Amino acid sequence: MAEKSRTQMKRKEKETTEVTMDVKEVKNEGEKAVEHDKSPSAEAAATNGDQNGDFQVEPMELPPFETITGDRVDPFVFKFQFKNVEYSSGRNKTILCYLVDRGDTADGLLKGFLEDEHAGTHAEEVFFTQCLPHCDSAIKCTVTWYVSSSPCSACTAKIAEVLKARKNIKLTIFAARLFEWEEAEIQAGLKALHAAGCKLRVMKPLDFSYTWDTFVENDEQPLNLWEDCKENYEYYHEKLADILQ
């Protein structure tokens, strides 16, 4: 147990160091940009415009975030988002890779991925509204997800609702990490999802390699697993087993 605590402390220190370095880099880049920028600031431009009566600076409106869809995930994004670290600093989005087997239908096997940043509709919900909006109730539909983190409490409730309403859909979820698993509402959601017939699994080292080969733009290069991959899998596997028992 003492060894495990030391390992967790090292992980936390490593994650904190990485985040601190990222913040310093962003800050330095920002300072350099200000030093080299010779154009008048937005505030100055607005002031001059008002005095001259020529123009006024309008506030910039950012476009709404849209869920990204595709066949292959960027390798750098995959390596960062799917890394099964305990302290997931900066990993604020969900990547959902899916396989859909509808038996002997003409559509065959469907494959792809969804990516969100939790700024709008989550990837889990988008899957059922865009990727699988309809499924013949007479046809057994086997769905497999490989996700960067397990669903939040709101998504577990929606997924459980779909599985109860569409009995022909059988869903298996392989998660790289457990999202906020200490929270009571998260644990309740995972239990409800399990009760609805969903198979919940934590990704093993072989699952990461399979996902890399199947869903990532890898240029036929193998995945070099990180040092603590197996240990972290065992950690999350134990936590999930405790929750679902």
Rank of each mutant, 00 (worst) to 15 (best):
Q56H: 13
R6N: 03
G120W: 02
Q51R: 13
S41H: 02
R102C: 07
G103F: 09
R177Y: 02
F215V: 03
F127D: 00
L190C: 00
L193H: 01
V143N: 06
E183Y: 08
I186G: 13
L244A: 02
F174E: 07
K14P: 12
D74P: 05
Q130C: 10
D37H: 02
T67C: 09
G90V: 12
N28L: 11
D228Y: 12
L178V: 03
H36I: 09
S137Y: 15
T129H: 11
P222M: 05
L240Y: 02
V19K: 15
Q8K: 14
Q81N: 13
T121I: 13
V162M: 08
F128T: 01
L132Q: 09
D116V: 04
A176R: 10
R72A: 01
L163E: 04
W145C: 06
V57W: 05
D50N: 10
R91E: 14
P133H: 07
S41M: 08
G103D: 07
D219H: 14
L62A: 08
N92A: 03
F208I: 04
L109A: 05
N224T: 14
T172H: 10
A46N: 08
V85T: 15
C141D: 07
F80V: 11
Q221A: 06
C97R: 11
E58K: 15
I243Q: 03
A119M: 10
L206G: 12
S149H: 15
S148P: 14
G197F: 12
E29A: 06
L193W: 06
F113S: 06
Q81M: 15
L193T: 01
I243H: 00
D104H: 12
V23Q: 11
D213G: 02
D37R: 02
V57I: 01
Q130T: 11
I173Y: 11
N48Q: 11
L193F: 02
T20D: 14
R166W: 06
V57C: 04
L171W: 06
G112K: 15
D50E: 10
A157D: 02
L109W: 13
